[in-house]
């Protein structure tokens, strides 16, 4: 367990001294800032009160557009985790230290979840803005559920990204594979719009995470999503461990 912490700490350190962290954070904040601004503008222009809480709901889960930047950011955040170690050769000292593959994978994963959390933290300022400027009080329960949902999406996306970084030979390939899987699942969600019947549509939307944030941002904690995210993550982490271990054979 000590090794997990040591590896995670180094990874976080290394991420935040790399330019990639600042590029991602800047673009991220800029992008979501603009989206929030536009949404706020739209809500302000709409007649009728009581829109403040809805603004946050709309921002975090009102549109599937919310996911599109994540499909790009998640691969960029996770691509270096193991692929960089492999291409620079530092994987050799890492894997010859007396630590298990499980520790390495969990350490890297913990670091990735830390980036994810750090990137979302500034959006709390949007909540603060709405709470300050709005006439109605913010529904703090819904906010809690929203951030739980966001974290759960991170649990899913970061694990898939880590797995791709474990199998790909370089970072670009890792990013592309992650994008392919996350994007692919997202597109499956689109199939729900085809005339496939209600049951099948629910399945598609569920797989593609289209409705996850819509539900959580309203304050509905749908445990099916939590279970889905966690099981995909567990599978991806297990496969990452296997990928690292089988790498010793070659």
């Amino acid at each position: 367990m000590n090794a997990v912490w040591t590896i995670a700490k180094r990874e976080v350190f290394s991420f935040f001294v790399s330019p990639i962290a600042y590029v991602v954070m800047t673009v991220w904040l800029l992008f979501f800032g603009i989206v929030f601004y536009i949404l706020a503008l739209v809500f302000a222009q709409q007649a009728g009160g009581g829109g403040e809480a809805n603004l946050l709901t709309a921002f975090f889960g009102g549109t599937t557009l919310f996911y599109l930047p994540l499909l790009v950011f998640a691969p960029v955040m996770t691509m270096r985790l193991l692929a960089e170690e492999r291409s620079s050769g530092t994987i050799e000292p890492l894997l010859t230290a007396p630590v298990s593959e499980v520790s390495v994978v969990l350490g890297k994963y913990l670091a990735a979840l830390t980036f994810w959390t750090v990137l979302w933290t500034p959006t709390l300022s949007y909540v603060w803005l709405v709470a300050r400027a709005g006439k109605n009080t913010v529904d703090w329960g819904a906010i809690g559920a929203t951030y739980l949902g966001l974290f759960s999406v991170g649990v899913f996306y970061m694990a898939v990204g880590l797995f791709m970084s474990a199998v790909a030979r370089n970072q670009i390939v890792a990013a592309m594979l992650t994008f392919l899987v996350l994007g692919g699942l997202f597109v499956i969600g689109l199939a729900g719009y085809a005339n496939v019947g209600d049951d099948l549509r629910a399945v598609f939307e569920y797989l593609g995470l289209w409705t996850q944030m819509a539900s959580f941002s309203k304050g509905i904690v749908d445990t099916r999503y939590l279970v889905y995210d966690a099981s995909i993550a567990a599978a991806a982490l297990f496969l990452s461990v296997r990928a690292l271990a089988s790498g010793r054979g070659s």
Binding site: T6, I7, F13, G89, T90, P98
Partner: peptide
């Protein structure tokens, strides 16, 4: 000798030592 180029020597050795228990 693959090393993490972004770390300082001292940080790297501390990291390695703690990894090695």
């Amino acid at each position: 000798v693959p090393l993490y180029g972004e770390m300082r020597v001292d940080e790297y050795l501390r990291y390695r030592a703690s990894l090695k228990g």
